[in-house]
């Protein structure tokens, strides 16, 4: 047993995961008239921007990116993340009839996504909502599933998953601590 943090994904692996997710989104939603990404603050927004950029490179298709902030609603207090004092929900485009891909760094209990579905429902009438996450660590408490997953983490390893993104943390990595 070692306590040294293990790196699950390094910068390059995160880059590949983002690219793979972008490919999968394009494959599944190519026919959608309107495709938009909405990141969950804070790291989900940065990932959403990168996925959008990748989609633009791949398909020459502009994908608007919005942000939702679930901190006022969240009920999974067992997982206190360092709260970024940030602006609130910011979806400045219509999501009516759009395929909305909700992007977050980690999917665990599913409580965040459930809240996000309610917030999105309040913003408009999307055609569909899909979920993309960098890491799915299981332990679901709500019947939510991700449509696009960068990396699955088994139950045993899932104690502490730390996602770091260069925009906020200076480097890209997913570490197990």
């Amino acid at each position: 047993m070692t306590d040294a943090p293990a790196i699950l994904l390094d910068g390059a692996a995160i880059g590949r995961a983002v690219a793979r997710i972008a490919h999968q989104i394009l494959e599944r939603d190519r026919a959608a008239d309107r495709l938009v990404l909405v990141g969950v603050r804070s790291r989900g927004v940065h990932l959403a921007r990168r996925i959008a950029q990748k989609i633009e490179e791949l398909a020459a298709r502009a994908v608007p990116v919005g942000a939702i902030d679930i901190t006022p609603y969240r009920d999974d207090v067992e997982e206190p993340r360092d709260r970024i004092e940030g602006p609130e929900t910011d979806v400045a485009f219509s999501i009516d009839d759009a395929v909305v891909v909700l992007v977050d760094d980690v999917l665990a209990t599913g409580r965040t996504v459930r809240v996000a579905l309610d917030i999105l429902g309040g913003l408009g009438r999307p055609h569909a909502i899909q979920v993309a996450v960098l890491v799915d660590r299981g332990n679901r408490e709500v019947p939510i599933r991700a449509d696009f997953v960068g990396q699955n983490v088994s139950d045993a390893e899932s104690r502490r998953v730390h996602v770091r993104v260069r925009e906020l943390d200076g480097r890209d990595e997913v570490a197990l601590a």
């Binding site: 927004v45 608007p64 990116v65 942000a67 602006p87 910011d90 925009e167």
Partner: peptide, 10 residues
């Protein structure tokens, strides 16, 4: 829209 899309780094 294109300007209000994202503000993270305030």
């Amino acid at each position: 829209p294109h300007q209000l899309t994202l503000f993270t780094d305030t």
